[in-house]
Design a binder for these strands. Sequence first.
DNA 1: GTGGAGAACTAAAGCGCTATAGTCAACGGT
DNA 2: ACCGTTGACTATAGCGCTTTAGTTCTCCAC
Lengths: 338, 338
Amino acid sequence: MGNRPTIADIAKRVGVSPGAVSFALNGRPGVSEQTRARIIEVAREMNWRPHRAARALGGAQAGVVGLVLARDPRTLGSEQFYTQILYGMQDVLSAGSSAVQMQLVRDTAAEIDLYRHWAAEHRVDGLVLVDLQLDDPRLAVVRELGLPAVTLGLPGEDGQLPSVWADDAEAMTTIVDYLAALDHRRIAHVAGPPVYQHTARRTSALREQAVARGLTAESVPTDFSDAQGAAATRTLLSRAERPTAIIYDSDLMAAAGLGVALELGIEVPRRLSIVSFDDSVLTRIVHPALTCLSRDTYALGAQVATSLLAAIADPRSRTSIRTETPRLVVRGSTTRPA
Amino acid sequence: MGNRPTIADIAKRVGVSPGAVSFALNGRPGVSEQTRARIIEVAREMNWRPHRAARALGGAQAGVVGLVLARDPRTLGSEQFYTQILYGMQDVLSAGSSAVQMQLVRDTAAEIDLYRHWAAEHRVDGLVLVDLQLDDPRLAVVRELGLPAVTLGLPGEDGQLPSVWADDAEAMTTIVDYLAALDHRRIAHVAGPPVYQHTARRTSALREQAVARGLTAESVPTDFSDAQGAAATRTLLSRAERPTAIIYDSDLMAAAGLGVALELGIEVPRRLSIVSFDDSVLTRIVHPALTCLSRDTYALGAQVATSLLAAIADPRSRTSIRTETPRLVVRGSTTRPA
DNA sequence: GTGGAGAACTAAAGCGCTATAGTCAACGGT
DNA sequence: ACCGTTGACTATAGCGCTTTAGTTCTCCAC
């Protein structure tokens, strides 16, 4: 039963003091190589594992990093992306026998509460902040709490926190390049909520590109839900001069948009090309499969974990890592306008 | 900074011993109502929060329950369901200021390793076992480790563990009832892996129903991936005597199947009816929207959390809760066969 | 007015591990 | 031969909280 061996048990068995065992097991000087080996062997034999709480209590780490997702329970849909991130993170962290504590909350206020809670209870050693907002209120809180953190997305203006990011502007340019090459002149963009930094970057990149190339472009904000994605699509496609291509900020909305096109009898891709900013199974199972930007989300998660571990080890480190710009994967949903 | 107040700080401030503070804050007898009130007030004033690790060390609970999902990172797809479960669980657990530790692993062996790990490090107070298998190797391990656990799905044969479950056989019957009423005579079932208990139950329920009603029915096993779901569909639809209705064990496979039907030019629902065993956004965004079994997954998660808390409080409790049988939600993907 | 039962606390040990200070012997340099 | 080092440990305190075993007091019954 629950009676796991303690460091004292090992000490007794080997015939040394508990302190010596602690030194040995943590690779710290203070014991001869001989006894160290002996201790390690006995520890393995007895199937010893450190008691996390005991370690954490001694001022050490909790062995947990936190990741909270703020979204309405009914607007779920981006899980695919974050599940992959989670997977990537876990594989890196479990090597250091840490774990990721993922939690879903309703909104940013709840998210902040949770951070305070976690900090107070010493539950986590570090945080991953996702879905960065313009003027993000979380940044100040995290700084105040003194918790190491890494942002996934754009780096903070003033480089407050280390971050792992991809260039959204460049990604948008990739898409527009492609659509322009196909001769699309009227492009629409079903975007996420404007408070998000990535949405803002994409939107402005599209505008710039449109001006530079003399295209008509328009971004429609949504809350990322399939319902609003569908609604936006319906509005766009009901116009007299409807767009010949629509870029969606998420795979969920893209799929929903495709459904609307089918429902309106607008052939995809002949009469409407669709591009999704996210890749996932979803883009592959609908018909036609969706052209999208794809990236190695698993690797991204691993990257985030690595950065976070570095930030925890040295809280003053401030290195941001720019990841590869997502690649465009062309599938059946795009072609030259009819 | 990080210098959170301790129970001793409160004690000093109020002028009592740390023990008294502990009593007061835990609603335990040993202090007068007056001092208790005073202590609680000061604690709030100083913004005190218990240090989790310290509590856990004293033999108390870690305040974490574990949920591990064993699946290949490339076969992800059921996240939607589990994200909802997670959400439901969290809302119940956070009231008791516990958290859910969700982790993804590659297979059952890794899952079992993780349980041992968690148990040894006292990381979790209890477990939720999902995707029960026939002759599930995890049951013995969990018993051996003495960890309170709840299964989500069918109860163990011998009622070893409390469980929260819905009747898969009855659910399947609901679907067949409906399809039979529409006059479908040849029904196929794209199932999950046969090792899973729910797959087995559904498969045998379908067989029984088919015999009872004189229908032709067939179950095709898959690994739950969109690829195999699509492949199975392709095989079924390429037959001379193809089914007029296909039941899918997951929404992901159902959507993939729909894609295949479109690709083969088989109209849905006129020439093929599709029913999904799971509900999620996915069933709503494809076109036509999929008829499916729906249940309140959030509530299910909450139920699981409640049961688990009960199991933790009293490890001998063995109450299984049978939840409502999922309701059939009819949408555009089903009709009478042409 | 004395014994005894509560009530209201305090004191202190302990959870498992880390970390610091201290002990002790062996060795080397002068 | 003596002091200072160094290496290999041991002893001990402490992390923040819980919990058990006291210690006082007060109050009441006989």
